[in-house]
Amino acid sequence: MARSVAPNTFSGAATTTATDVESGYRASREAAGLIDLGSVGRVRMRGDDALDLLQRLSTQDLHALQPGEGAGTVLTSPKGRIIDLLGVLRFEEHLLLLTSPGRQSEVMEWIDRYTIIEDSELEDITERTHLFGLIGPRAREIAVTAVEEAQTPEPGHHVAALVAGQRVSLVRPGPLGADGLFVLVEEASDPEAVRGALLDAGAEAVSPEAYEALRVEMGQPAYGKELDERFNPLEAELRDFISFAKGCYIGQEVVARLDTYDKVQRRLMGLMPQGDAPEPGARLEVDGKEAGTVTSVVYSPGLGRQIALGYVRKRHAEPGTRLTVTGGGESEVEVAELPFL
């Protein structure tokens, strides 16, 4: 079972100016960047059947998840399409679900729809809590400096801590890199005090634009761009969050069949624009036939050029393949492996 916690925390902010995109970028690559993830949905799930219910509604094998542990899982529709990518943290008395930014209501409605006789209750605590991300090689060092009891969790785990006298949980996730951390500010604690303490400890604030550039460089999908009901989790390269041995969950039959018969039609890939960068949503073709779609485009400070993400039909997904941008004159993109950096 993949233990990394991978909520889709990316809001997909549009890149605007060079200054915005540079703000906090270098710190995130070389030291530690502080990302405000306040818009990531936070839903508390309580009840004797909560974990069992989630096990029946999502792709990851969660049955052995212990208090202090977390995992990433995908809510899928009966057709095997993506409802959301969730981070699930198990605490002693409840589960905490981290949804994609602004997706908490939809996630709660989805789970409610399948809650019939189960002892399970959902509560949206997004407004009463806060979430920061620490990213970069010095992220853990910064966290240790800021916390009053110096410990950071093992990968896939979370621990309670105090930062500036405020109750937080430090969470070791996957998508912020090996050294990244989430800092979950608990109820009745002051996020501004936590933010101040993390900045004082040496983290540098990361602009939404710089975070978006980092996301695309890392090849992480964002809800509404690479993740939604148009796509299944195999196309979106979310295999680490799928158990093929756990038994039934909603959408399992479709996901298992796609895998067994090698029926996945397209893959999430990197795209290197040659010439003018295409717009998100642009269609890609080979010899006039549909070959893919562009989903995200950013300026990459790390590579000093425009880069993009997109879904590419499997037969054209070999890195180095040139695809024509439909309606883009002569402009092309070259397929690249993910992550870019």
Binding site: R56, L57, P78, Y114, C248, I250, G251, E253
Partner: peptide, 12 residues
């Protein structure tokens, strides 16, 4: 006899 959320198709 009961119906729960889950299974491949949504309810089991």
């Amino acid at each position: 006899v009961a119906v729960q959320g889950g299974g491949c198709s949504g309810l089991v």
